[in-house]
Computed example of a mutant assay.
Amino acid sequence: MYDVAEQALKLALEARDGMRPPSAATNTAVTLPAATLQQYVGDYSLMGTLAHIRLHHNRLQLQVLDHTLELVPESATEFHVEYRLLGLMNVRIPFPPLRFVRVDGRDFMLLRDRVVTAAEKIPPYAVPEIWRARAGNYRITNPDEHYLVNLDHCRMLMEDGKLLLDIKISGLEDRRVKVVVVPMSDNEIYVFGLGRNVGDVARMQSDGAKTRMWYSGYLFEREADTPAQPTVAAYHGTR
């Protein structure tokens, strides 16, 4: 894993540190065939957070944290980022330029800033039924009143064949994130990806009556399913 990370970051650093002309000299957009763009389409883990790359009107779009950004190609693998202002025009924004690379059969989207961030494309993976059955809402039982950032709520769910933790964060930053997790065993999952905020392991506990999850120092307990309310027909019969 570390060899792959080192190689991916090395490629990004080579592109950033003088082996290519400065970015100001490479701002000319190019037109790429749909087949080239299509190979980058998919779901990625960006520092553990689910991000989507989709093809829209022969242009790649990055969707992450409820934002949609336009990816403008400068070569077959390098893109700069624009934002569609008021739905009328695209404006280039100070977002790190992107480069797509493949290392040992694994696909990465590299954000080439002062610190290089690698988002890994998520391959298909199996989610056993025992994990699918654990989907639902979880409440935190040990909040930390002295910590500046808190995890308020967590929901485990399946989405497009992937197991996710939908987490609400409050404190210094208020946002919701979807974290991509992959089963390691019947009782452990890990946050998929490469770099910061990934590799953390969540562990499940069950005593038959309660289902609990340890994650990032917090203990979550699954909320009981709300009992179905009887209908009028249940009391009076149907006609």
Rank of each mutant, 00 (worst) to 15 (best):
P183Q: 11
R134P: 00
P96W: 04
T68F: 03
D17L: 15
S45Y: 13
H52G: 08
N27P: 02
M156C: 02
Y44S: 00
S23K: 13
E74V: 14
V149N: 05
V4A: 10
L71Q: 11
A133T: 14
D152C: 11
P96S: 15
D186I: 02
A135F: 04
R239F: 13
E223T: 06
D174N: 15
V41S: 06
V64A: 06
E6V: 15
R203K: 11
P227Y: 10
R99V: 03
N187K: 03
T26E: 11
V180G: 05
Y2F: 06
L37W: 01
D66V: 04
C154I: 07
Y138H: 00
R54N: 14
V101G: 05
N187D: 03
R84N: 11
Y2E: 14
L148R: 13
M19T: 08
M213D: 01
A5M: 07
I130F: 06
P123H: 06
V41C: 07
W214A: 03
L85F: 10
M89I: 12
L50Y: 00
M89F: 14
P128I: 09
L194Q: 14
L9F: 10
G136T: 01
R175T: 07
L65F: 01
R16T: 01
Y215F: 15
E159K: 15
Y190G: 04
A233V: 12
N197R: 14
Y2I: 09
L55H: 12
I169Y: 12
V179T: 14
L165V: 00
Q61Y: 02
E6M: 12
T26N: 12
H236K: 08
V179C: 10
L69C: 08
G42L: 09
P227D: 03
A228W: 10
V30G: 08
V72E: 11
R222P: 09
M158V: 12
M213G: 02
L65V: 00
N58G: 07
E120N: 08
R176W: 00
V232F: 11
P123M: 01
A25N: 14
Y2H: 07
G171Q: 02
Y138E: 01
T238Q: 09
R102Q: 13
P230M: 05
L71Y: 10
L165I: 03
V72W: 11
H52W: 13
H67E: 08
A34H: 09
G208M: 10
R92H: 07
L71C: 14
E221P: 11
C154E: 06
L69N: 12
H56G: 00
K168W: 09
L219K: 06
L62K: 11
N187E: 01
A12H: 02
P73L: 06
K178T: 01
